[in-house]
Each structure stands twice: as C-alpha cells, then as structure tokens.
Amino acid sequence: MMMNGEATTEADLFLNCTDMSVLERQRAHLNNYNHHHPGFFSNSSTINCGEMDGFLASAGLDLPAIYGDTTVYSDARLSASQGNITTESGNFKKRKFGCVETETKVCNEKKKMMMYREVVVDEEEEEKSKITEQSTKNIMKMKMKNKAKKEQNSCSNDSSKVTKDSQKTDYIHVRARRGQATDSHSIAERARREKISERMKFLQDLVPGCDKITGKAGMLDEIINYVQSLQRQVEFLSMKLATVSPRLDFNIDDLFTKEAVSDPMMNLPNTVMPPHMMVNSGYPHDLVNSGYVDFNPMQQVVTSSDPLPCFNNGQASSMWDSDVQNLYSSLGV
C-alpha cells in the first residue's frame, strides 16, 4: 500500500538525518506526508511557532526526547513551549490528560534516546495508517506536520476523537495584520470579504465601463444593468432572427462553424465578421457537400431552376452568384 511506502521512507529520514536541524526535519516530514494530513488546528487559523509548541507540550512530548540530539534552537523552543502549556485552550485539555502517562515515560527514558526514537517511529506508522483511513477528506497545508503526528502518537487512546476534530476543519489562510482582531469570527469574515473583493475585481474586468466606478453599490448597479442589457439583447436578437428567416432554418450556421474554427477574428469580443467573407469562403465547400443538398430539397430546386444566373453577363462575378444562392438558403425559400 501507499501508506507503507511512505512510512518506510519517513522512517529512513528519521534515522538518517540525525545531524539535521529540527526545522529541516520538519520540512522533510512535510514533504513526505503532504497528502494525508488530518488537521489538528481547527480552531486556530493563524499558526505560529508559539502555538505549535504549545500543542506539542500539551501532547506531553519532549522535543529532545524524540529528536535525540538537541540543538540550541530546539532547547529554546522547548522552554517556550512549557510556558505555553498554561495558555492552552480547553479543547485540548482532554488530550492533555490522556497524555500524562506518556510524558512521564518520556522523562524517564531520556537516556535511551536513539532507541526510543525508533520505537516512536514504529508507533507513528501504525497510528498514521489508522487515522488516515478515517480522515480522508481533509487536505490541509500545514507546516508542523511532525508535531501533529507526535500528538497522535501520544494520545493513541483517543485517536477517534482526534479524527472527529480534524474532519470539521476548514482551513483558511489569513493572517491578521497589526491592530486587527484575531478571533476566529473576524478572521473568517475578513477572509470572506477578501474573496468577495477579489471576485468583484474579475467582474470589473468583465463588465465594460465598470472600471471607473469605485464603491460596491455602484459596481453592483453597473453589473445589474449589464446583465439586463445582455438579456434584452438576446430577446431582441431572437426576435430579429425570427423575422429574418421565416423558417428556423440556418444553413448559414454550417458556414459559420467552419469560420469560427479557422478565423482568428472570432476570438475578439463583439467582432462582427464581414458577412461576404464568411459566405464566400464557406459556401462552395458546402455546395460540394451532397448532404447539404439532400438536407434541404426545396433549395436544390431553387438553385437548379434559378432564373437569375442567366442575367449576370460579364459584370457580375461568380461571387454574386453564390451570394444569391446563399440568400435563398438563408431565406429558406
């Protein structure tokens, strides 16, 4: 299975990179498990280092115990994390209680760090396979992969609870600027507003004459007008088409499709193609096509018994000829 392959590579990483810094290892983990990632930080949309360390501490694991060698950097983080334990939200308290035992264990076995690391990796693999089966939907980008996993590892008994948490995550990537509120509601609201303004910018590009207007109300007005005018145009055009061709018979359409493929002019908005070009390039092709003639037997009669061609002596070219025939086809006479 895929899980196994990934797990083994992860274990390899773990064993091989003893001399890497903590951050590097985290990054490696991130690359490894980018896909199956249950979200653990559902109620905090901004994630920074301090919070993460808090989670780790609440999960009851020591950084140095897991990583074996301790750099100065990780030491500093550890001390910071212990300070953060008290500020943990109530959501994680249950998990915390569940993990007290493992914490003590970790403290006791600090000296057999290398061996313990391997054990941890094994356990992690098992946990991972269990949990990723349950939480399939959540795809979340997170930097602190590693730590989340450790959390899972430590609280194996309430893994089902964890997955429940992770299933309702909806990860929003917003950062609060200076002086902005950071509670989840206002952040979500800000994200929504940002989304709306982004879409409005697209609309501004799309609706002609909308780019000069500032303000949402004016823009909405313009958009409504534009949509209504388009709808009215459709009405008007269908009316015109109904009067122009007495039967719903557009043999021009065949020509038109051929033109639409070949002619680059069609890519331009609102370009009206010179009709004679369209007719002339497309018509002979259609005339050759026997299916066309069969399709509309009336027309065949008209073109064959057409009295007009005998009149065009000299001055009228073959272009005119085809035009007249086209007229008949468009009129459906």
Binding site: V234, L237, S238, K240, F250, I252, N270, D323, N326
Partner: peptide
C-alpha cells in the same frame, strides 16, 4: 453568436 448570425442573414438580404 446570435449577433453574427443575424448580421449574416441580414447582409444576405
């Protein structure tokens, strides 16, 4: 699309 068709038809007439 509709406009180009209408134009074509009208031009024919």
């Amino acid at each position: 699309v509709m406009r180009s068709i209408v134009d074509a038809a009208e031009a024919g007439i």
